[in-house]
Amino acid sequence: GSLMYASIFGNVSAIIQRLYSGTARYHTQMLRVREFIRFHQIPNPLRQRLEEYFQHAWSYTNGIDMNAVLKGFPECLQADICLHLNRSLLQHCKPFRGATKGCLRALAMKFKTTHAPPGDTLVHAGDLLTALYFISRGSIEILRGDVVVAILGKNDIFGEPLNLYARPGKSNGDVRALTYCDLHKIHRDDLLEVLDMYPEFSDHFWSSLEITFNLRDTNMIPGSPGSTELEGGFSRQRKRKLSFRRRTDKDTEQPGEVSALGPGRAGAGPSSRGRPGGPWGESPSSGPSSPESSEDEGPGRSSSPLRLVPFSSPRPPGEPPGGEPLMEDCEKSSDTCNPLSGAFSGVSNIFSFWGDSRGRQYQELPRCPAPTPSLLNIPLSSPGRRPRGDVESRLDALQRQLNRLETRLSADMATVLQLLQRQMTLVPPAYSAVTTPGPGPTSTSPLLPVSPLPTLTLDSLSQVSQFMACEELPPGAPELPQEGPTRRLSLPGQLGALTSQPLHRHGSDPGS
């Protein structure tokens, strides 16, 4: 009898404990919600809404976190579960008819179910419309201010047509639940991603989709105040780019002037030289400038040598048109050559190039014969006009050509200096018209024969001689050997007369 009593008592207590286990969990969670309300000092109306929603959600799901349970299964099984949970929507909604099984599984994985109690606001006026909503159960109302403009029910759709707008718009009203509602919502990016994977279904979906109420604000059109608020930074940046392009296009129409201050000032006329910023005076940081632009901040801005204009002085008759350009485009679109090309026009420029290279940067340069637009006047290309890779490749080509020119210049200078040193070592320090008596009659020769300089066969020296023939050397430049009979510069000019005159010897006659 005691054994029977113990078994009955144990079973009854276990049954009672299981009955009250759900209630215990409910009270535990309710205590957490109330502690949250007390800690954050939530006001009474919002506090009442929180408690009511918790009670309804507990009775609806029995305190089970559906998302946590669903995430515990593998992905393939999750797709089947989501397809079952959203079967009513996918079967009865017209846009989803005719979709393949794979497309429906992908869509079912992207849908999220939302449960809303009465009085809950789903979308506020001015919120971004980031999702498309399908009503599965219940009814909602749409308000503009305090005026109800629409009441939607089961199988209705609200949001915005995503295929017509590249960016999400703003809501033009509040969406509030009238009863307990079940909503299926899919985010904008998720829907577009699935439709991109199934393009054959995309056309059918957009053609058959009928949005019951379009929440997009109709005033959000390009150029409206609301649109400016939504895309303020983007609009200002776009206007700045367009104004920069218009100014650079105007600059290219004036090829007669070359400016070292950047493309923003290349198009300024002579009357605007004294102004601080020219056409860019209202925004000094709008356009890029070269490193020399920092010198323009000092006094005497109108007389600054940074602004270059072609000189009108005539060229000498024998002067060549100019050196070879550094870039391939210089032959086609440049009416002034790079300062480095002028360094190779003569030997005198070679000796004085490194010492006063900055001073020569603004000297007169030889002109190319074609009066085409200036290379320095070409505006900086924006990322939309020329690819970045093209600019980098041009810079690399320019750097390689500069290296080759520097190597060639160093070799030419070394060769010229070597020839000058050899000339100085071969010439005796001094010569006299009267020579010392020699031991015999073989001493009648006034000077030792001097062998002429070897013929220069280097390509670089031939180019130097060509430049010497075309360029007029300055007075202080050293002379180079030329073709024809060679003669030492330090010898007297009348050596031929010395050989014809008898030598005057000093000596005593033994017979006297």
Rank of each mutant, 00 (worst) to 15 (best):
F351L: 10
P317H: 13
P454N: 11
L326V: 03
D329F: 11
S136R: 09
P369G: 06
R246V: 11
Q501I: 07
P428K: 08
S443L: 08
K241G: 11
S382D: 15
V258Q: 09
V450K: 01
T252Q: 13
V464Q: 12
T252F: 13
L162Y: 12
V149H: 04
S272L: 12
G511F: 01
P485N: 15
P446C: 06
L143V: 10
R216V: 04
S352F: 01
T372V: 10
L183G: 02
Q399V: 11
A266T: 12
H204T: 10
G496F: 04
M220A: 08
L128G: 04
V347P: 14
E297R: 06
S460G: 11
R247N: 09
P371W: 07
S462I: 12
L417D: 03
S227I: 09
S462D: 11
L498F: 09
L376Q: 05
R273V: 05
G496V: 10
T179W: 01
S171T: 01
P168V: 12
G440D: 11
P387M: 11
T444G: 06
A268C: 09
Q423Y: 13
L498N: 15
R400L: 10
L491Q: 09
R238F: 12
L409A: 03
G323P: 08
R388D: 15
L128M: 10
P270D: 15
H506M: 09
D249R: 10
S207G: 13
T336Q: 08
T212I: 03
G145N: 06
P383E: 04
E331Q: 15
S289V: 06
S283V: 14
P320I: 06
S382I: 15
A166V: 10
N172V: 11
T212S: 07
L398A: 04
V464S: 07
S357G: 08
P492V: 11
D182E: 07
S334Q: 09
E141D: 01
P270H: 04
D251T: 10
G264D: 09
G159M: 01
G173Y: 11
F213L: 05
A433N: 09
S345C: 06
G153S: 09
N377I: 01
Q421W: 04
D356F: 07
S381L: 08
A150G: 11
H187Q: 07
G145L: 04
D190H: 03
F158A: 03
Q421H: 13
Y362K: 07
Y180V: 04
L192K: 08
Y165F: 15
L495P: 12
P325S: 13
R385S: 08
Y362T: 09
P474I: 06
L456R: 09
G126K: 02
A177I: 03
L419G: 08
T228Q: 08
D296R: 12
R505I: 10
P325W: 11
A177V: 08
F244V: 10
L261H: 10
L409W: 10
R238K: 10
G493W: 13
T444P: 15
L491H: 11
P474R: 07
L420D: 04
L456F: 10
P284I: 15
I151R: 06
P446N: 14
T415P: 04
E200K: 04
E229N: 12
V148K: 05
P255E: 12
R388Y: 12
V450G: 07
S283R: 06
